[in-house]
């Protein structure tokens, strides 16, 4: 206990705090880049999954299999798989790239389900009306379905990304300079584990808590704005 107290002034130096801030930036960077790319690719996956016709059955199967399999593999295993797979074929891929690809691989599987739920929440009649006017499947999705699905998709997608900030701690295993890796480094330099990991936990908390609250706020706002719209509708008819 005295050791911890005695270490405090040495630990909270400007240099160390700068390192932690940088590391927090890295945590945020890999999470947001990975999740945003993953979110985009998840749209493609869902779109392919909804391809009609007999010839597309294998394609639909692959899309379903991707989601089902990656939701059932630990993120840590995905990280190792991506790391060794990429290193087996590309010698000089940066750790940042590998971490982003691993996050992306995982985010696709989770956000695909969110997106599918959102798209399916739009009444089928809207699609029929569009198809009857000769809008293509792509036009129907982008012009009619997606604009109506956003309020259903966005809150859980943000909740996923925010929650995933914590899971990215696992990429410290392959040596990406993010928060957890810095923590282990400082611990190895002889700083107290309680002090270091307590501080790192607070760093995650400082990032995660406000974003979680913002996500909840967004969810209620979108829910009430839709509620208002349907209330207005009830009054008019």
């Amino acid at each position: 206990m005295e050791r911890i107290l005695e270490q405090i002034p040495r630990f909270f130096t400007f240099r160390n705090m700068e390192l932690l801030l940088e590391a927090a930036g890295m945590t945020l960077a890999i999470t947001s880049v990975g999740c945003i790319i993953g979110f985009g690719l998840a749209f493609v996956l869902v779109y392919l999954r909804q391809t009609p016709g007999k010839w597309a059955a294998p394609l639909r199967f692959l899309c379903i299999a991707y989601v089902e399999i990656f939701r059932r593999i630990p993120f840590l295993v995905v990280i190792y798989l991506v790391l060794f797979f990429i290193q087996a074929f590309i010698a000089d891929a940066s750790l940042f790239t590998i971490a982003v690809i691993a996050i992306c691989t995982y985010a696709i599987a989770y956000t695909a389900e969110i997106i599918r739920g959102g798209l399916e929440s739009v009444p089928r009649e809207q699609v029929e009306a569009a198809r009857a006017m000769n809008l293509s499947r792509f036009q129907t999705t982008t012009q009619i379905v997606l604009p109506q699905a956003w309020p259903v998709i966005i809150p859980p997608a943000i909740a996923f990304a925010v929650s995933f900030i914590k899971d990215t701690a696992l990429v410290s295993q392959i040596g990406v300079f993010e928060l957890t890796f810095r923590g282990k480094e400082l611990n190895n330099q002889g700083y107290s584990g309680i002090l270091v990991f307590g501080t790192i936990a607070m760093c995650y908390f400082a990032i995660s808590y406000p974003l979680t609250r913002y996500g909840q706020h967004l969810e209620t706002r979108l829910a009430t704005s839709r509620g208002r719209r349907s209330a207005r509708k009830l009054r008019r008819t």
Partner: peptide, 10 residues
């Protein structure tokens, strides 16, 4: 023209 109008809500 459909029974439920099916106007694009957006």
């Amino acid at each position: 023209v459909f029974q439920q109008y099916n106007l694009f809500q957006n």
